[in-house]
């Protein structure tokens, strides 16, 4: 039951991240998506994978994206 709720929120976040106009917001929502993936993975008893996804996905990946966005610009048309 909890898995189903978390999966629904994941789908909502994925859809939101692809449709906001500000790229900074999109990368932060992707960080939250990564965190929810980590929670779902630890619910499915994959603790090593959840640890890696938490470090790499919502840590380094978000930082690298924001670092690039500072050079490239936050505005987008779609």
């Amino acid at each position: 039951m909890l898995e189903f709720i978390i999966l629904l929120i994941l789908v909502i976040f994925a859809f939101l991240s692809l449709n906001v106009k500000n790229l900074f917001t999109a990368s932060i929502i992707l960080g939250a998506y990564s965190f929810l993936t980590c929670v779902l993975l630890s619910k499915m008893l994959a603790v090593d994978v959840a640890f890696t996804e938490a470090c790499v996905g919502s840590g380094v990946s978000t930082v690298l994206m924001v670092a690039t966005l500072c050079k490239v610009g936050f505005k987008t048309k779609d």
Partner: peptide
């Protein structure tokens, strides 16, 4: 998507879903 950064975000969402699918096969 028209923006290249949105394509990269799509790649990231795509990879996370495949990881979830495989790990769900190992649950008992």
């Amino acid at each position: 998507k028209n923006n290249f950064f949105k394509k990269i975000i799509g790649m990231s969402i795509f990879q996370a879903s495949v990881i979830l699918f495989y790990v769900s096969m190992g649950y008992k």
